Amino acid sequence: MKNFFALIIVVSFFSCKKAKSQISNDDKPKKEMTRKNKPGEISGDDKYFEPGKQAIIDCDFKIPSKELFEKKMMEVYKIDIKEHEGAKALWLNYYRGEPTKENISTSLLAMLSGRYINYADGMDPDDIIPDHMCKFNKMIFYNDIQATNWFKTNASYAIVDLIKDNGDIKNKDLLKFVFNKIDLANANELEELLFGTYARGKDYKYALRKDMLDKMIEYGAELSQLSTVANMISNGNPESYEEDTEELYAYLMAYCYKAGQSGIIEYLYDTNPKMIEVFRKKDFYGIEDLEDFTDNFYKPQDKRFGLSSIGPDPYIAYGVINDPDGYTNLRDGKGTSAKVIKKIKEGEKFGIETNTGEWWIVVTEDGTRGRIHSSRVTVIKE
């Protein structure tokens, strides 16, 4: 809605005053567009956006090609200019003829930057700084390093708001900056980033950004509060979300495992066993190794045994490590990228639960379960 609002503003105060490079059209009457608010639209900028007002910015911003313009509108603002009437009008108005430096107007730049730098912190509309607009658009269109560093240093809120509002996941540098800038250990901040401020308001529903969650895991963002966000959703109002709240809850909890929080999944299964079937019906949401964890790694509380436990021997064999380093890492999943639970030292005895594949499931003397590579195991008793 914010993007649409910005586009309405841009189109409405466009002046038909031709730039030097535009094709001559003197025989046609000149029209002046006027700004009209839609019902319920908040209007606090009429003081600046007067009908026909236009200014030329003297900066080295190069107007992007049509292809680049379309690409960035979709990547950054999630707007398809082929389908969005406001964006189509913008393109027709500002890209007739051969675009040059002289026909860069505040309206074009404001469409892409105004919400983030013009009115922040209660800034008066008359205090708009065109140079800041120029820098912002250079950052968006061309990943300009100097412009980006300026915003990181002087107006980081503009980058944070941009990512929060639109969920842009294409720019790795900006994403990492925002992940480090926001206090993701705060569940409310995490929830806001995952669902986006664009979904706020009584007429809108929360929509989970699944691609954002993938990027947060890929870039190692703080996700310790992900289970808290899942519980917030579970205890919230179902009508507030586009998806079914139980499915959202299950999805986020499953991603706790992908984020390396296998202990939370174990606790979830202990306290709510039906979630195993919820995960199974959804093919474990395509999360690698979650099905294996559920079927082979997880044990209900009443069936967990340590080596010293009294009861049926649950192991197919016993072993010790075979490692020249004198220790082997016990991990919570397959592969060397899986989280290290503890180190098994030379001489320690452990039980072997499964011996298929390269990564066996073993249980140490204190009952800790995990995986070690088969090449590091010497079987001492079948």
Results as ranks from 00 to 15, higher is better:
L109C: 06
Y298T: 03
K274N: 11
L112C: 07
D325H: 13
A120T: 09
G167Y: 12
N93M: 15
T100W: 00
G44K: 10
E291P: 02
F61W: 02
T294N: 08
G333T: 03
K215N: 03
S374Q: 13
D244G: 12
E189H: 11
S375W: 02
I276N: 06
D46L: 10
A338D: 03
I341L: 15
S107E: 09
F61R: 00
I104M: 08
K30L: 08
R376V: 05
K349P: 01
N154Q: 01
A55P: 00
P99L: 07
P99I: 07
N166H: 15
S156L: 03
E32F: 08
G86A: 02
I264N: 06
M275Y: 13
D131T: 10
G357Q: 07
N180R: 10
A120Y: 11
H84E: 14
E83T: 09
T356Q: 05
I81F: 15
W150R: 07
E277I: 10
E358F: 08
G347V: 11
E41Q: 13
D60L: 13
M123D: 09
I321E: 03
D121C: 01
K345S: 13
A89W: 10
D323I: 00
M139S: 04
D127H: 04
A187L: 03
A250K: 04
Y157H: 13
Y241Q: 02
R35A: 12
L7W: 01
I182P: 08
L194D: 00
K30H: 05
D325K: 12
K282C: 11
L307P: 04
Y198S: 13
